[in-house]
Design a protein around this nucleic acid. Structure first.
Lengths: 143, 143
DNA sequence: CTCCCTGCAAACATTTTGCATATCA
DNA sequence: TGATATGCAAAATGTTTGCAGGGAG
């Protein structure tokens, strides 16, 4: 998926009949700047820097909206599965370190073929996928 | 992973230096009988049928223990990511229906190769994986 | 008999609702 | 201006901890 500019993201929101508000922009900006995965609390905290009156509630509602529009993806971690990241930054492939908790992404060539095969065999209409590997990152793995 | 009998599961618990108690047995039995994925509340409710004094707390603690021992796997669903299933019943490959919420499993030949390649490239020590496909099951997909 | 495990209650953390007000288009 | 979105407070939900008593080995 190609990377979108903030303006393009705003456009998606508008086209869907929703308003572009300060709260929503704040959340978008936070996610745009973030490299990795953030949880709702972090998004709220960072969002307050640019919009101090931003409420927790709006963060949740905005995230719901962005997920519905396909702009944001929810990441399900091992402990507390409450991460969010921009969908166009990620392909849905994550490496989660069980020691330091860091999440990184990886390219995964060949997965699509595999998914096609599964779809054919199961009769399932596949609309998305998530592949997570758990283990130890290079920094945490024993020598 | 081969399917284990309840006695074998008990043995694993004992070997690890833990006691086999009524609460733990109740949770094991519930998970053994269940076909799909259950959340903590469901496990508690069903477990009470066989052990009425079973407390919520013990369910959580038992699940932690079983995960630690590798007997149970945690499933991260879309809404409320709090499912649990016996590890020896599952390979970590799930199809989640976005309409009816049903979770089923699928065999996924060829994934291991793919993971090996990723491990080599990333320097990550991979200890487990989870592949989830989201979409519509045969019953829910449009004609 | 001893120590681990349990269950209760209460603390805690996170997410969702009700409602009056503010704000975008 | 009018419908939508916000933010607060409070409720609902889900999970963890403290502690006295109970049960497995």
């Amino acid at each position: 998926m190609k990377m979108r500019t903030i303006s393009e993201l705003e456009q998606v929101i508008r086209s869907a009949g929703y308003r572009v508000t300060r709260s929503r922009l704040a959340v978008l900006h936070v996610l745009a700047r973030a490299d990795g995965v953030l949880d709702a609390a972090a998004i709220h905290r960072l969002g307050r820097r640019e919009h101090p009156r931003l409420g927790r509630v709006s963060v949740y509602r905005t995230l719901d909206l962005l997920i519905e529009l396909g702009l944001v993806r929810q990441i399900h971690g091992d402990g507390g599965c409450h991460g969010f990241a921009r969908a166009d930054r990620s392909e849905g492939h994550y490496l989660v370190c069980q020691s330091c908790g860091q999440v990184s992404e990886f390219p995964c060539a060949g997965l699509d073929q595999l998914l096609d095969a599964v779809a054919r065999q199961s009769g399932f209409l596949v609309r998305g996928h998530m592949l997570q590997l758990e283990g130890l990152c290079p920094a945490c793995r024993p020598a």
